[in-house]
């Protein structure tokens, strides 16, 4: 499977580096290695969700209890979680680190992924949620650190969009 193991490891290490010890997730192809790494790490609590909105609540609870967390999801998972993001994170001013695999952009071969990707950034912007793309391996650690810093200082959700160039290696 041409999902980048090396770059998934970079993202995972960066996430741990900013103090994340609890991750909630639903899988999608680009997330398989990240979720496996969380599952295999005895220092990480992995919560397998039924639907992404739950993860917003779980992260809020973890924050209340003094634990840093992150959500792993895809574009449609983010879109599914909107009510929780608005009704918990934004309303109550709770930090939330969202890692969103950004499907549906240039190079997308799956027709069913092409709509969700189109709406992710406009929705993030409409909610005034700070976001950035993770595209180059060198940027992963510093951008993750800055994202977490802003989430904690602004008590807000932030989003990192994991791009195709980072997560996917085209078979040669």
């Amino acid at each position: 499977m041409p999902v980048s193991v090396a770059n998934s490891q970079l993202v995972y290490d960066a996430m741990k580096g900013v103090g994340v010890t609890l991750v909630s997730a639903l899988p999608e192809t680009w997330l398989v290695h990240l979720i496996r790494m969380a599952d295999e790490d005895p220092d990480m609590t992995l919560v397998r969700l039924a639907k992404e909105e739950e993860g917003v609540g779980i992260s809020a609870g973890a924050h209340f209890a003094g634990v840093k967390s992150a959500m792993l999801m895809q574009n449609h998972g983010f879109l599914q979680a909107i009510n929780g993001i608005v009704g918990v994170s934004l309303l109550y001013k709770i930090p939330l680190l969202m890692l969103i695999t950004d499907r549906g952009g240039f190079g997308e071969k799956d027709p069913w992924q092409t709509e969700g990707g189109k709406h992710t950034r406009p929705v993030l912007d409409a909610l005034h949620i700070a976001h950035d793309d993770l595209t180059r391996p060198d940027d992963v650690q510093p951008t993750m650190a800055k994202a977490m810093t802003l989430a904690q200082s602004s008590l807000s959700p932030v989003a990192l969009l994991l791009n195709r160039d980072l997560m996917w290696e085209e078979p040669r």
Binding site: L22, E54, G61, F64, V88
Partner: peptide, 11 residues
């Protein structure tokens, strides 16, 4: 209940 789960896992 999701918030409760987050707290329960963290503490």
């Amino acid at each position: 209940s999701s918030i409760g789960l987050g707290i329960a896992l963290a503490q």
